[in-house]
């Protein structure tokens, strides 16, 4: 899994991750406030344009974004079936109530999931965990013991994935792999936890032996920058949010959901 290794030089990879996360905040707020297909569709268009311009276009269509393309229509479908009914009824069965209104809600929900998730997933793909930790600890001044502890824990993703595969083979070898997939899955998950916690305890010892957690003012071998590039990334994020909101207001589809 790629989070266990250093990421290759993607565009924006050198930007402080704090800025990349922050850039998604304004649009997320706008899209959470309103439930309308226009703001979301405009946002998607802007996102595709921006990603194409900075060279992240190929990532949008990579397998890593596949979950979005699957989950968004399904979430929309839930709302088509169970959304608040209004307007003409097309189909009713038990608690399922497909109406003109619920179709619209479904469409809006689907576009909204895509519009919110797409930039976050694509931008996270350009984030190296080490840079994220540097940003969290040095830019946002979160407690370094916790940030670095979490970062060190990430080292174990690779060995945990390997463990998971081996555990599965071992269950086949022990003769218990023919039935009971849920029970076996739970047992396997438990074994994975045992191994991970053991390794984590050893890792903690190794870190302590190297002075981690000592009552000394920690220094940083590298500085996390936060300069013009970072501010421009955030500005682009604000701009996209503003365009999406303006479009919806002009189109008359802007509706603050909880006010309704």
């Amino acid at each position: 899994m790629s989070i266990a290794s250093v990421r290759p030089g993607l565009p924006l990879a050198a930007v402080n991750p704090v800025a990349k996360v922050a850039a998604t905040v304004p649009l997320s707020i706008v899209l959470v406030l309103t439930l309308d297909p226009v703001s979301a569709a405009v946002a998607i268009a802007c996102e595709l344009l921006v990603f194409a311009l900075v060279g992240l276009g190929p990532l949008v269509w990579s397998p890593r974004t596949l979950p979005i393309w699957i989950a968004a229509p399904l979430t929309g479908l839930s709302m088509v079936l169970y959304g608040a009914p209004s307007g003409e009824t097309y189909w009713q069965f038990g608690v399922i109530h497909v109406t003109e209104g619920s179709l619209l809600i479904g469409l809006a929900t689907m576009t909204r999931v895509i519009a919110i998730a797409l930039p976050a997933v694509v931008l996270f793909l350009t984030i190296d965990p080490t840079d994220l930790a540097d940003g969290l600890a040095q830019t946002l001044h979160l407690p370094s013991r916790f940030v670095l502890g979490a970062l060190a824990g990430l080292r174990l993703v690779g060995s945990s994935v390997d463990d998971w595969r081996t555990l599965r083979l071992a269950r086949r070898a022990r003769g218990v792999a023919d039935h009971g997939i849920v029970r076996r899955g739970l047992g396997q998950a438990f074994a994975l936890l045992v191994l991970a916690i053991r390794r984590g305890s050893t890792l903690a010892t190794a870190m302590e032996a190297r002075g981690f957690g000592a009552p000394v003012d920690r220094t940083w071998a590298r500085t996390a920058r936060f300069g013009a590039v970072e501010w421009s990334v955030i500005a682009v994020g604000c701009l996209v949010a503003a365009i999406a909101a303006t479009a919806a207001i002009l189109a008359g589809t802007w509706n603050v959901v909880w006010a309704a």
Binding site: S5, V6, A152, L154, R155, R199, A206
Partner: peptide, 9 residues
């Protein structure tokens, strides 16, 4: 354990 003492990436 070589796997359990690498702290950084």
């Amino acid at each position: 354990d070589p796997d359990a003492q690498v702290v950084m990436a």
